[in-house]
Amino acid sequence: HIAEDTSDLLQHVKFQSSNFENILTWDGRPESAPDAVYSVQYKTYGEGEWLEKEGCQRITRKSCNLTVETGNLTELYYARVTATDGTGRSATKTTDRFNSLQHTIIKPPDVTCIPKVRSIQMIVHPSYTPIRARNGHQLTLENIFQGLLYRLKLRINHTYQMDLEGKQREFEFVGLTPDTEFLGTIMICIPNLFKESAPYVCQVKTLPDRTWT
């Protein structure tokens, strides 16, 4: 009996996680199985039972939100997808071992850049995650990662750049030329876990100096 090749039904089953929002995604070749439906299960590593993800049974889309089901930061998880086409052919594929603390990607921070005459203030807003504390409060990245810090750069010109870094959320680049354009970038860094967000970029112009000289 030759096992039927069903690899075209299902590929690249993996978690895509950013700021602890954990989405299971997969691919399937639509031209070979236009009527395929997908069912998702998940489990905790080390346990025997696969659990069905409600709301992702016999779906036609190729993603499923498992944020709640994989929300324990110190736990390790697996998920798997079963694809079934109209002729009854099916394929099942399992993810790699997943832990959101290790695998989540950090999104750029949300920042307000405030130009003044000879300085630019940058206020970093908290990055909320779907993770909740026992008291129900939504946790921010700062709550979750003790070592989190912000790294800021202000490009002055082609050769000169100012750098600031710290755990606080308010920063100010001072000693700038009035009425001049600057490019600021702000990143979230978590050194002990080798995580760094893409930069938030703000282009801003210092105010003209209207004081009588």
Binding site: Y45, G46, D96, R97
Partner: peptide
């Protein structure tokens, strides 16, 4: 390394 561990029921 983890991909080679096929016994995911046991920790």
């Amino acid at each position: 390394v983890q991909a080679k561990d096929e016994i995911i029921d046991i920790r």
